[in-house]
Simulated scan of single mutants.
Amino acid sequence: MIDLENIFKKESVEDVILHFAPRIPYPRIDRIYVKYNFEVIASGELLRTYQRLLKEGKLLENKKPLPEKGPNWKEPVFVTEKRYGLE
């Protein structure tokens, strides 16, 4: 089972977005941060980071609700190390 609480509390906002944005819609990521790490929402960090990742080409918007992995996308270290129950 994936330990979402620790992912959203311990990992950088950029890494969390890079892993989850191509899989779940932004509003759901926002709600998970509200539950586990509200400071990221209150400070505006989540939205700023998401917009920056789009500008940097790490994520690409399309006509679907989920962005695609961009040409500059790299898998976050917590995923490659299979932390938090990720496979």
Rank of each mutant, 00 (worst) to 15 (best):
D3S: 04
K35A: 09
V40Q: 03
L59H: 07
E14Q: 13
P67N: 07
A21I: 02
Y33D: 10
K35Y: 04
L59M: 07
P71A: 10
V77D: 08
K9I: 01
V13M: 08
F8V: 03
S43A: 05
V34N: 15
S12N: 07
K35Q: 06
P76V: 01
E45L: 11
S12A: 12
S43W: 11
R52L: 09
F38S: 14
R83F: 00
F20H: 04
A42V: 05
W73I: 06
L53K: 01
V13D: 09
K10Q: 14
R31Y: 15
W73D: 09
P67I: 06
K64H: 13
P71Y: 09
P76Y: 02
V13T: 15
R48P: 00
P65V: 08
G70F: 12
S43C: 08
V40F: 00
E68Y: 14
Y26P: 00
E68S: 15
R83Q: 05
R28E: 14
D3R: 03
N62M: 08
I2L: 09
P22H: 05
F38C: 04
K35E: 06
L47R: 13
D3Y: 02
V16G: 04
V77H: 05
L86V: 02
E39L: 10
F78Q: 00
I32Y: 10
P27Y: 10
L60I: 14
F20P: 03
R48C: 02
E5R: 02
G57S: 06
L54T: 04
I32L: 12
V40W: 00
E75Y: 05
A21W: 01
K74T: 13
I2K: 10
K55W: 10
V77F: 08
L53F: 06
N62H: 12
D15P: 01
L46P: 06
V34A: 14
K69V: 08
A42K: 15
P27S: 09
D30C: 11
